[in-house]
Nucleic acid binder design. Structure first.
Length: 486
RNA sequence: GCAGCUGUAGCUCAGUUAGGUUAGAGCGUCGGAUUGUGGCUCCGAAGGUCGGUGGUUCGAGCCCACCCAGCUGUACCA
């Protein structure tokens, strides 16, 4: 059998795990500080609780991993953390304080085509406030997102962009796409706008009109809007002015004649006032080009974007882009309840944010991995118990250490220690044992010394960077060596 | 799903103007020189159904058909 990792999934090593844990801990601290509390829900939910999607018998795993329970009910792996939270809140509604503010991180799964930076299993870190209809809740979430990015060492390198779905609804109304029968056309428009950053205004213009042909020759059908309708939509996405006042003036013009649009503008204005009043101007900013592709948002929508540039595979500098997003979803919890329940939340894409932190060499994630263990070599196989006492002494002193457990000779053991990244090894053969001593070899110093050595004979004779200490002195000596290379 | 490209050793790739004996290299791995010392150097070894199946041919890694897988773009992403 061939060992192979399913596509779209990934293994993680010690360095990645340690870095991710450090980052998650930092995010958690900020969320706790804001008074959010932890909650965890399972990876599996009833399929119908996750959304309107129901697996059909032919393709039950389209988009979401699904399977049938022994009672034939459909179960699915969660594809985000929002729908399971909605289920949890609805199910425990009477016991929870409202507004209920909670956070959680965990794996989510999507059965979609993977690509660079896109996996079928990935981690999200969410915070949500359920039961607060005020835009103050939305503003708080945005400010908390900003504080989180600051805490991670990204100050000045991000902006949390805010928009309002109601304004777009107003624009749709104004160009005659308001009715229920045009819902699918509205969704096409929404998704077209969402690609603005990737395709530019011209690409989006094609998508809103007849359609667009990509470089492989594949054709994507457009929304079929008339030129005047398209320009009105683009006037909305391009309404961001040089300052907040001009942005709002542009927005007011774009939604002229739509009550819902005006409501959105006024909500957005309220958020702007709250954010500026709290001193977050510049970090949290109004940006009409943010729409988000999801249908369930009902009001404010946000996106956290990193503004520094990275070079892509073609050598072109591009913005790092979005590391999280969210918005108000007043309809989701209400699906399980007789009364409507307002809610708003924000979701961080953990692995994307982590790669950003690694890219800017954030101290939060640099050298997060534990120092490699001290390796005690086995020189006299029949006296393994005595070697074990050396390891035990190191461990008792809190020093990460291990006994070589393979069957190879000393040379191979040295190679093993080298490959482990060990800072030093402990050598006790019969000579040292009889003297009550051990040899401590500093592998890092030794490697440096080796660079000056040319010949093999010299190399073998030199035995660089190693010294003898009494068994009693071993722990202190090892501590010194470790401290030198920390 | 649609479109394009690519499949030769663990990895990166050669494989020559027209098909021609036993398919190569570098890196990596393992062993030895050095049975108690990482590196360097030298020597050696292991490792391949040439993605699969069928076809053309005296003969296929190379040509043809179909299939599979991977990559890239695009769509979908509730």
């Amino acid at each position: 059998m061939k060992a192979r990792l399913p596509r779209g999934l990934t293994d993680r090593g010690p360095a990645d795990l340690a870095a991710a844990n450090r980052m998650l801990e930092k995010i958690r601290e900020v969320y706790e500080l804001y008074g959010f509390e932890a909650v965890e829900t399972p990876l599996i939910e009833y399929t119908d609780a996750l959304g309107k999607f129901l697996p059909d018998q032919d393709r039950p795993n389209e988009g979401v991993f699904s399977f049938q329970d022994d009672d034939e009910q459909w179960l699915s792996l969660r594809y985000d953390l929002t729908a399971p939270l909605a289920r949890y809140v609805a199910e425990n509604f009477d016991a929870l304080p409202k507004p209920y503010r909670s956070y959680r991180s965990g794996w989510v799964f999507r059965n979609e085509k993977p690509g660079p930076g896109r996996f079928r299993q990935f981690m999200q870190f969410d915070a949500d406030t359920v039961g607060a209809a005020s835009v103050a809740a939305d503003a708080e979430i945005c400010m908390m997102a900003a504080d989180t990015l600051d805490a991670l060492g990204l100050s000045g390198q991000y902006v949390v962009k805010v928009n309002n779905r109601k304004i777009l609804d107003g624009v749709m109304e104004a160009i005659g796409l308001g009715g229920d029968e045009q819902a699918s056309q509205r969704l096409t428009v929404l998704r077209g706008i969402d690609k603005l950053d990737r395709l530019g205004a011209d690409g989006v213009r094609d998508l809103l009109g007849d359609g667009r042909r990509d470089e492989s020759g594949d054709f994507t059908k457009g929304a079929g809007l008339a030129p005047s309708q398209i320009e009105r939509v683009l006037a909305f996405t391009g309404a961001g002015g040089s300052d907040t006042a001009s942005t709002f003036a542009n927005l007011a013009a774009v939604v002229a004649g739509s009550e819902r649009g005006a409501e959105g503008v006024s909500e957005l204005r309220e958020i702007a006032v709250l954010v500026e009043g709290a001193g977050y101007a510049g970090r949290v900013a109004i940006d009409p080009s943010v729409v988000r592709g999801l249908e369930y948002y009902t009001g404010p929508v946000f996106e956290a974007e990193l503004t520094f540039t990275v070079t892509n595979e073609d050598g072109q500098p591009v913005r790092f882009g979005s590391v999280g997003g969210g918005g108000r979803y007043d309809g989701l919890v209400g699906r399980f309840r007789p009364e409507p329940v307002p809610a708003t939340g924000f979701s961080i894409g953990v692995s994307r944010l982590l790669s950003a932190l690694q890219m800017v060499k954030s101290p939060i994630v640099a050298n997060a991995a534990a120092q490699a263990p001290v390796v005690v070599l086995v020189m006299e196989r029949e006296r393994i118990a005595e070697h074990q006492t050396l390891v035990a002494a190191l461990r008792a002193a809190g020093i990460r250490s291990e006994l070589y457990l393979g069957s190879s000779g000393m040379k191979a053991q040295m190679k093993y220690a080298d490959r482990r990244g060990a800072t030093c090894v402990i050598i006790q053969g019969s000579e040292e044992r009889e003297r009550g001593e051990v040899q401590i070899k500093d592998l890092i110093e030794g490697a440096k010394a080796a660079q000056a050595i040319e010949t093999n004979e010299e190399w073998r004779a030199a035995r660089p960077a190693q010294f003898s200490v009494s068994v009693e002195g071993m722990v202190d000596a090892v501590r010194e060596v470790l401290a030198r290379h920390r």
